[in-house]
Design a protein around this nucleic acid. Structure first.
Lengths: 161, 161
DNA sequence: CTTAAAATGAAATTGAAATTCAATTTCAAA
DNA sequence: TTTGAAATTGAATTTCAATTTCATTTTAAG
């Protein structure tokens, strides 16, 4: 039985924005894309493709790895996701739903990634750029060290996150 | 004809330091390692393996890619080289001969990488870390934009370097 | 010298990212 | 609705840098 207006739980406002964005690009709205977007937006943090795929597969095992890969790339193009590459070289995706620019603190013990914003950093960036005649469009700042809990352990365990 | 003491041009002080470092590690000093080190120290900038290998091959085509790869890894372990991964994901190597910590300005037009140091950045780092209860060991800051020349071209060309 | 340990280098392997292509789905126009 | 061109899907494959393997060669200690 199919309802004309079925507002399922989890169907967020973003899904509709997504339909609009997608058709504006001459692209098509599909069930897979909707599902991947839904899962992606309803999760937090910085996940690599394998992690996102695992989560998608839990809900719908029929969706392929490739589709997840391409959808995340698409979301990045549309500005809904952002790619991040930290020192380990893995590509991670982060939702841009929260909006503003931020940088990262990364725990070498447990792998926890904490976001931060700092106005001082932004102005510093411009001062440095001016000094070297550059016109800056974006930056990347990562601070590597140990978070509170890990700083007190003797042998902190590695965790993905 | 073989001279007993042949101080070839290019044999720098570092070569001897290298011999010492290497034997201290229980490793062996070889012609290949010396040649690779020599080329690496007598070049500047941030090069990827393929670029370093190409330069080595120009001097001695008998040296294999694997050996260059392993030697750069060794140099990194010994603290003579440092690995860098910028947003494009490629691994680059930089000589640590110049010494101090620095960060990078990266031109999106021509690929030029400019180093900079900034004390304000270092103190900022500690302020942010304290705010989040982290103990920071190192950081990474990269500013992406256009350098002076590229900012004025209509279609800047991509260059490695 | 002799010899064990280390290094070399060609080739093979790994693994993430990207692409291919036949089958399927979407959606606008009929 | 139905249709069909264009886009999407997903398994399989390719790509490509990074890394490992292994048979052979080189180093340096004794």
């Amino acid at each position: 039985m199919k309802l004309k207006f079925n507002f399922k739980k989890g169907k967020t406002m973003e899904s509709n924005q997504f339909k609009t964005l997608i058709s504006e690009e001459g692209l098509k709205s599909t069930r897979q894309r909707a599902e991947i977007l839904d899962i992606f937006l309803n999760s937090t943090g910085h996940k690599n493709l394998a992690e996102i795929y695992a989560q998608v597969a839990k809900t719908n095992p029929k969706i392929g790895y490739t589709t997840v890969y391409r959808t995340l790339k698409l979301l990045t193009r549309l500005g809904l996701a952002a790619q991040r590459k930290f020192a380990d070289g893995e590509t991670r995706y982060e939702s841009t739903a929260e909006g503003t620019h931020h940088d990262h603190l990364i725990c070498l013990g447990c792998g926890k990634i904490v976001e931060f914003e700092d106005d001082g950093l932004e102005s510093l960036q411009h001062r440095i750029a001016r000094r070297h005649g550059f016109k800056i469009f974006h930056h990347r700042m990562e601070l590597y060290g140990y978070c509170g809990p890990c700083a007190h352990k003797k042998t902190p365990l590695r965790r993905k996150g």
